[in-house]
């Protein structure tokens, strides 16, 4: 098993800055949902990781901790993080995306 990035929606949506989406070396991997967290009264929407594209480099963790100073991203084992966004389940909208979450490790 291997590590992938996982973004805490509550922490990100409280202060969101979109920096990690610009610094992830992989394309189409950290996406943004403008509505995430709004049902809990959080303001900004949140970044999230399409985990099947993540190469586990942890640069986003460094960017969130040191540049954004928000500490919203942790590296976690792919088989232990529960349901996540996967490329096949991402829905692109006009200005934002959403993802139907699913278990990243098949059966």
């Amino acid at each position: 098993m291997y590590l992938v990035a996982s973004i805490n929606t509550e922490v990100c949506a409280a202060t969101s800055c979109k920096l990690c989406t610009q610094y992830c070396p992989e394309a189409n991997t950290i996406l943004y949902n403008n509505d995430a967290g709004k049902d809990q009264g959080l303001k900004y929407g949140s970044a999230y990781v399409s985990v099947d594209r993540c190469k586990g480099c942890a640069q986003c963790v460094w960017v969130c901790d040191n540049m954004a100073k928000h500490n919203a991203i942790k590296m976690e084992m792919i088989d232990q993080i529960g349901d996540q966004a996967l490329t096949q389940n991402i829905i692109y909208g006009e200005k934002s995306t959403t993802a139907v979450l699913a278990n990243p490790v098949p059966g």
Binding site: T21, P25, E26, A27, N28, Y32, N34, C57, Y92, K95
Partner: peptide
């Protein structure tokens, strides 16, 4: 606007975390 549109670059075999990739 990244994170809200589909980028033209797809998956590739360059090393994890490579700055050239970014």
């Amino acid at each position: 606007q990244v994170g809200s549109f589909k980028e033209i670059l797809e998956e590739h075999p360059m090393c994890a975390g490579c700055a050239m990739t970014l």
